[in-house]
């Protein structure tokens, strides 16, 4: 499996996992000129959540969430702001990282990103 297909597979699992957790997915792969947001969803309490999915096939290079650098977070925030202004939204929102370790079954973990 190439890194690209691993990422794609990860995002599929992520969507499934989030639905199980009671999230309602609004949009996947929201693209802007600053980058991309993997999943935009609303949780059980209807709060808007921007989700970055990180998938790794092994722990040789550390936990998936460790690869999210402060610079990456800055990009994600900027994308989120673009989404909010495009949709003229003034609601509270948050940013989360969904860390997936590939396996059978894969393990998923939601981590708040601030």
């Amino acid at each position: 499996m190439t890194w690209h297909s691993l990422g794609k597979a990860g995002e599929l699992i992520a969507a499934h996992f989030l639905r199980q957790k009671g999230y309602r997915i609004i949009q996947q792969n929201f693209k802007t000129k600053c980058g991309e947001i993997d999943i935009i969803a609303r949780d059980r309490k209807k709060q808007l959540v921007f989700i970055e999915v990180k998938t790794r096939s092994s722990l040789h290079l550390g936990q998936p969430e460790e690869s999210v650098t402060p610079e990456k977070l800055v990009h994600l925030r900027r994308c989120a702001q673009i989404y909010l202004s495009q949709h003229r939204l003034h609601c509270s929102c948050r940013l989360e990282i969904l860390s997936i370790i590939w396996g059978n079954p894969p393990t998923c973990k939601i981590i708040p990103a601030d």
């Binding site: 936990q63 460790e66 999210v68 402060p70 990282i97 981590i111 708040p112 990103a113 601030d114």
Partner: peptide, 10 residues
């Protein structure tokens, strides 16, 4: 003082 909380590692 050291506090450890859930969140991105750092």
């Amino acid at each position: 003082e050291v506090d450890i909380a859930p969140g991105l590692p750092g």
